[in-house]
Design a protein around this nucleic acid. Structure first.
Lengths: 243, 243
DNA sequence: GAGTGGTCTAGACCACGTT
DNA sequence: ACGTGGTCTAGACCACTCC
């Protein structure tokens, strides 16, 4: 449903006002509630803008495709770049109490660690270290994650684990010399430090990734809402790569 | 409505499973759709977690109150800190083509600039530079923004302009010596560089703020969604201050 | 199978912006 | 006034999880 409305937006072009919700519901043969849900989704994706009493409008700039925090490969492809990975090293360690807690696994069991540089069109973008309990991905090795392969695809195909939810934090850091070298930027350059924890459909953690993203190639964009608006929805996050 | 369910969540405590939607709807005497809307709001505010077929649960950590990107003062108060401002300087400049375009105003007209350090419990948190077309806030001076006063309150009370929407970008930077001094951190410390543009209810830009936030006190948290999920909703953004 | 959330319909009234 | 989006009701069926 949302796709039909999105197509209509593309057809009308930026700045255009969409037909009213009642109109759309008869036009597409669905109820108004369904149309509203679709419009709310497009709103969240920053494709349309709604003004109470005025109407729904296709967003002016529509600059880069609004993006959600997803996988590296998807992000890059959406920007028309070719994603790839270069394996730096991988090993298996025994989880101490701390690591076990973070991965929600029994302590003392093995954990696969994989360190990769992620590239877009051959240029280093991020430096990632992945942690996953070995028992949840039996047989997986670092080599499986070299080249163009996607960890999320591997998870789905070989282990029938599909990413369902996750949480991520972002903080600014200054790159250490070694990390800066791997990313091809001067030592002391600014970067974003991401820590992502993802769960599969069963609720189990299937990855904890710490990554450093080049500050000159990453920025985060978000919508903001009026201060003091208690009933306000969430701010919307989208990422963009600086050209 | 959402408040009632939020109160129930607080009562039940972290990790607890909420009653089903049908149960809640009879309990509160509203329709199930209304309950769902309230739950979606709590979901966006990261207060509850929902699992299809399983149930709705109060979020485990509920660490710091989840926050939306709002005004500095609101952010700090929500964290139990006392916000304040220290005026560094202010002046009025004539907008060149670039600045005029960014503020969506005619070129050649005056723009008020105000530079402030924002503090929480007396400790520097961010360094802000505000730009606003003078014609939209006639009579406003930098001194009006010294001390505990809120720009947003001034806008509403003196100029009848209420913030309605806005957009913000975030990038990592390394602090210059002077900026680091003002923020009370060592030179070369990491920071987040925010650029916020806010519009009032008439759609006019009433502020463009560039700010530097201490990297040791700010981090951004967001939910992530499955890769390749075209119909997925938006990632949720919340901010947190590192203790 | 029983209970959960996810989706949908058809209709109503309210709040707001435009004219 | 009129049309817009915002909210709500009452009921239905589907998809999923868990026992």
């Amino acid at each position: 449903m949302g796709a039909k409305v999105a197509a209509l937006c593309a057809e009308l072009g930026p700045g255009a006002m969409l037909p009213g919700e009642r109109d759309l519901s008869t036009r597409f043969g669905v109820s108004r509630a369904t149309v509203r849900k679709a419009l709310e989704e497009l709103m969240a994706r920053r494709i349309v803008e709604r003004r109470h009493g005025a109407g729904t409008f296709v967003r002016r700039p529509a600059v880069a495709q609004p993006l959600m925090a997803t996988s590296f490969g998807d992000d890059m492809r959406r920007r028309g770049l070719e994603p790839s990975s270069r394996l730096l090293w991988s090993d298996t360690v025994v989880a101490d109490t701390d690591l076990a807690a973070r991965l929600e696994m029994p302590g003392g069991e093995p954990v696969l660690r994989v360190c990769r540089v992620r590239l877009a069109d051959g240029e280093p973008m991020t430096l990632e270290t992945l942690h996953v309990p070995s028992s949840r991905v039996p047989g997986l090795t670092g080599d499986d994650l070299d080249g163009p392969s996607s960890y999320y695809e591997l998870l789905a195909e070989r282990f029938d684990r599909r990413i369902r939810s996750g949480t991520q934090s972002v903080a600014p850091v200054v790159l250490a010399t070694r990390d800066a070298e791997l990313l091809g930027v001067p030592a002391g350059s600014p970067a974003l430090h991401f820590v992502r924890t993802s769960r599969d459909h069963r609720g189990e953690i299937v990855e904890r990734v710490e990554s450093y993203a080049r500050g000159d190639r990453y920025l985060i964009e978000m919508d903001i809402i009026p201060p003091g608006d208690a009933t306000a929805g969430a701010a919307v996050l989208s990422g963009a790569v600086v050209p």
